[in-house]
Structures are given as C-alpha cells and as structure tokens.
C-alpha cells in the first residue's frame, strides 16, 4: 500500500472513530458555542478591533483543544500498532488532513455563531474566507506536529499550549493583519504578499514536519 492510499484510509479511520464516539467533536463545538455566548454576555456592544481579537482568541484556544487529542490523548499501544501498519508520514498526513477539516468546520462555525451574537462586520467576505481557510491549514500543520512532540512528554496537554503558542505566532500575526484588511480597519494593497507569506510558512512547516517526524514517533 503506498503512502497516499494509506493516508486516505487513515483519514477515513479518523472520521469513523469520530462518528462512533462523537464526544470529541461535540465537545469542541459546545466549547465554541459557550465561549461565543460568554463573549456576548460580557461585551454586549463589540467594536471592530475587539471583534477581530476575540474571534482569533476563540479560534486559537478551540483549535489547541481540538488538535491536542490527535497525539497527546491517543493510546500509545494503539499508536504503536498503527506504526507497524503504515508509514509514519502517512499517519502524520492523515492527522494533519483530519485536523485541517476539523478546524475548517470550527472556524466557519465560530464565524457564524459570532456573527449572530456580535454582528457581522466583515466587508470583504471573500478575503476573510481565504484568510480563515489558510489559518486552519497553518494551525493544523503546526499544532499537529507540536502535539506529536508534546505527546512524548508526561504533561502533554500543558506542554501543548506552551510549545504551540510561540510557534503559531508568525501565522497568527499575518492572519490578524489580513482580518483587519477584510474588516477594512486598515487599507492595504499587499494582501497577496501576506497570503504568499502564509503559504510559505505553511510550506516550510510541512516540509520540516515530514523530515522530522521519523525521528519523533519511535520510543
């Protein structure tokens, strides 16, 4: 079985597991909805810069909670069994793809819920959708790999946040800037440059993840 085939099977497996257990995805969705509701309760009138800041804070914490289970909360014996069946990189790819799709749902759902309670201030909706899709991709790559690192330590969940935040910051800064443009908080003509920067960071990270993962999974 080649690497693409096994990746697809593994993604399929992730979805099957998810639909059987359901607690993970429903937990994340409930997390997002309750955070949005708390935001609505505490800040009734959300101004534009605050909208952007709150949106990304909710996404950041929700995605760390969503991704943490991919390696940190996985049974290590079962993981070892996967590694005997498939190439380690196929496992990494499947987790990244699964997390990407999960975060994509998460970002769009948060956007919907947030718009409902705090108003929908996005003026350039196309740019905003590109931004949050690229954001999901970047977060999925960086956080999946960080969760693989954190999963090796004893206090994985705490370590996940400590290791994850600084690595995500370059992606996050660019995303916040693009969001500000989409909200027309700033006038900017260099959107394509920012998008290219994001793609380049994602590219570097995925390349390094592929190179480094074989050193990581073995215990």
């Amino acid at each position: 079985m080649n690497i693409i085939q096994s990746t697809l099977y593994l993604v399929q497996k992730e979805f099957v597991l998810e639909f059987r257990q359901k607690y993970a995805i429903s937990g994340i969705l409930l997390y997002v909805l309750s955070t949005v509701f708390i935001v609505y309760l505490s800040i009734v009138n959300v101004r534009l810069p605050v909208w952007s800041a709150l949106y990304w804070i909710i996404i950041l914490f929700a995605s760390i909670n969503a991704v943490v289970k991919s390696f940190v909360q996985e049974n290590s014996d079962r993981a070892l069994y996967y590694y005997t069946l498939a190439h380690p990189n196929a496992i990494l790819f499947s987790k990244i793809i699964y997390n990407f799709l999960l975060l994509l749902v998460l970002t769009f759902l948060t956007f919907g819920a947030f718009s409902l309670v705090a108003g929908q201030p996005v003026k350039e909706i196309q740019l905003f959708f590109i931004t949050i899709s690229l954001g999901s991709l970047g977060f999925a790559i960086a956080l999946t790999f960080i969760s693989a690192i954190a999963g090796k330590a004893n206090n994985g969940a705490t370590l996940m946040a400590i290791l994850g935040f600084p690595v995500i910051i370059p992606i996050l800064i660019t995303l916040v800037k693009l969001t500000a443009t989409a909200l027309r908080l700033i006038q900017d003509t260099s959107n394509w440059k920012d998008i290219t920067t994001l793609l380049a960071i994602d590219g570097i990270m995925i390349a390094l993840a592929v190179i480094l993962f074989p050193y990581l999974w073995r215990d």
């Binding site: 690595v167 370059p170 960071i201 390094l208 990581l216």
Partner: peptide, 21 residues
C-alpha cells in the same frame, strides 16, 4: 531527541518571525 526535533521546528518559525513579519 524530542528537544532536538522541537529546536529545528522552532527555528523554522523563528526565521519568518524575525525576517519576514
């Protein structure tokens, strides 16, 4: 081993942080 992996990965985040952003 794990910290060497993180060191290499973190350096890749450091370069855009200091030179691109």
């Amino acid at each position: 081993r794990i910290s060497a992996v993180y060191n290499v990965f973190a350096f890749a985040a450091l370069v855009p942080l200091l030179f691109v952003i």
